[in-house]
Amino acid sequence: MKQILAIGLIVSGFAFGQVKKDTIEKEYKLEVTPFKAEKKEKPLPLSRKGQVFVFYGWNRGAYSNSDIHFSGNGYDFQLNNVSARDKPTKFGIVYFDPSWFTVTQYNFRLGYFIKDNLALVLGIDHMKYVMKQEQTVDFSGHISDPKYAAMVQNGQVDLSDGQFLTFEHTDGLNYENLGLEKYKNLVHKKNIDLVWSYGAGLGFMFPKSNVKLFGNDRSDRFHVAGMGTDLRSSINMVFWKNWMLRAEAKAGYINMWDIKTTLNNKPDKARQDFVFGEVLAGIGYTFNTKKYN
């Protein structure tokens, strides 16, 4: 009997010990299980596929010297190393009055994001180009009209009095272009984003050239005159989710081979090519903006 009791105590003690051991191990395992924090959703970039933006601003431009070749009935000549400048309108209400917006050197952009951070941008750059009147330039070629041929002295012609030539694209040097731009978020906050972009563009030149050559009636009409291309970069500050301030710089090349120099249908025309630089700034608005704070 004592032996049976002893065996029962041993078996029960062993079972109790096992239960206790299992319980302790389970409790221990529960205690050492690390706590997994919930993953917060990473803020998405401001610029996303399907987003659209519009922009309007104003520019200042600079142009390299260029050779301008003139040809027509009775003349075929080139003026070498001609310098030019832009023609900014004096600051005032004209910059904000919609009925006068074409008077200023303005810029328009319409952008559509075809992929996250990659946008197609349709642009109009209304620049102004004015040949500097107070200059003497090198001349090569021939003029049959003795009055204007006599103005050429020692292979040069003085343009100062405007009798020989006035030449400008002031209504204006219109660069209609399509660009591809890459965007990168630099700063991402609740109510403000700073976005950098860079890209390139290609388009056609649609100037309204104001040209008066040899005392003829001034040519003053819109005409597709050539092509242009550019590299550009911009800084965009987007605030309150939709409003945008944009500052942009670009450098490019313009080649115009069919500039109208008279009002009639004669074959009178000019051609020139030059490098240009442009800085612009203005305000825009974004549509279909998807932003997570």
Rank of each mutant, 00 (worst) to 15 (best):
V137T: 12
K190M: 03
D138T: 12
L245A: 12
H142I: 10
A37F: 05
D230R: 06
K20C: 00
R109L: 10
L46W: 11
D268I: 02
F14W: 08
A6G: 09
E41G: 00
G282K: 01
I114G: 15
T102G: 02
D230Y: 01
Y28R: 12
G252S: 07
R109H: 13
K42Y: 08
Y56R: 10
H126I: 03
H169I: 04
A249P: 01
S71A: 13
M1L: 13
K212S: 11
P43V: 09
W243Q: 09
N117E: 14
R218G: 03
P45C: 05
L122G: 13
A270M: 06
N216I: 00
L30D: 15
S233M: 10
V32D: 01
W240V: 07
Y129V: 02
D76M: 06
F274N: 05
K87M: 13
N210M: 15
N59M: 04
F35H: 13
V152F: 05
S197P: 05
Q51D: 13
M151A: 07
E248M: 15
F35L: 15
V238W: 02
K115G: 01
N73E: 12
V275A: 06
P88A: 02
N210L: 14
F113W: 09
D230C: 03
Q51G: 12
L118Q: 08
T262R: 11
D125Q: 10
K269R: 12
I93S: 03
L202E: 00
N174L: 08
K184L: 03
R60L: 02
F204V: 13
G8Q: 11
D125L: 05
K132A: 09
D97R: 01
G8N: 10
N185C: 04
